[in-house]
């Protein structure tokens, strides 16, 4: 059983985001990158599956600054193979471009299961899972919260809004978008990561030129604009009701 997990780095929202001079992109100077949280869950789910079934786990990530850290951390958790896709990410790569580059790589790896975080906060052209599934001609289930593996098939529990869940049986191979792992991502001691840095090897694959066609074009990127602030109505229940009625009338509510 081969599992391939996609992981990528996204801007860490701990830092204040700033728009660069072009007005259509984030200013990268002050940005700090962090693993996409849901990709972290996807890695955890893959490791849990490995622990249950003995599957082989490969983690695949674009070569952006900090990628070695997340790959070595994955190795410290138990990932067997680490691959980073080297390429020119400076000018911005969308998910379509990334999916096109990843398709042949993933085909070569002959996975039974492909896991990715179901979304990332900087996905502008849709999340990567369905795009990949399209190029690979494989089924896709998103918002998956739990996976059971059997010979040739998987049972995925998909979460719906409103607290609904559905169990779906799907033939392998399949692309799954992970919403949450069965258990929260584990803590990896720093010494284990340091050990992984000494023992694990990161393979490098060339991305070549990215084909970004089909994605949206950004006209303007801006901070949320502050609207009028809310008014808090104080007083007794009757007073509050009276002022509310007053406000409704003023606004022309019939």
């Amino acid at each position: 059983m081969n599992i391939v997990v996609l992981a990528k780095l996204v801007p860490d929202l701990v830092e204040e985001l700033e728009i660069d001079d072009s007005g259509i992109a984030l200013d990268m100077t002050w940005l700090r990158l962090i693993i996409n949280e849901l990709d972290d869950h996807a890695i955890e789910e893959a490791i849990l599956l490995k622990e249950r079934t003995g599957a082989n786990v490969t983690v695949l990530a674009p070569d952006i600054e900090g990628v070695d850290d997340i790959l070595f951390t994955a190795a410290a958790k138990g990932a067997d193979r680490l691959i980073k896709i080297v390429g020119d990410y400076e000018s911005g790569v969308n998910n379509l471009g990334l999916a096109r580059v990843l398709t042949p790589v993933i085909k070569d790896l002959q996975p039974d299961l492909i896991l990715a975080g179901v979304e990332a906060h900087e996905d502008l052209d849709g999340s990567i899972g369905p795009l990949l599934a399209g190029y690979l001609d494989l089924p896709f289930i998103g918002y998956v919260a739990s996976i059971e593996l059997e010979e040739g098939k998987a049972t995925a529990t998909k979460e719906y809004p409103g607290g609904l869940s559905a169990e779906m049986e799907v033939a392998l191979p399949v692309v799954l978008g992970i919403q949450v792992a069965d258990e929260p991502p584990r803590y990896v001691a720093v010494s284990k990561v340091r050990q992984a840095m000494k023992t694990a090897e990161i393979e490098e694959l060339e991305a070549g030129d990215f084909d970004l066609s089909g994605g949206p074009t950004i006209d303007r990127m801006y901070q949320p604009e502050v609207g009028e602030s809310a008014t808090i109505i104080d007083g007794s229940l009757d007073d509050i009701a009276d002022s509310l009625i007053g406000i409704f009338k003023e606004l022309g509510v019939q």
């Binding site: 701990v14 929260p184 803590y187 001691a189 720093v190």
Partner: peptide, 21 residues
């Protein structure tokens, strides 16, 4: 226990934060 990741979720957050920030 730390090596095994057998720790309180809040402690895990704190350690992850300390490592990162």
């Amino acid at each position: 226990l730390v090596l095994e990741g057998d720790i309180d979720p809040q402690l895990q957050d704190a350690l992850a934060n300390l490592g990162r920030y």
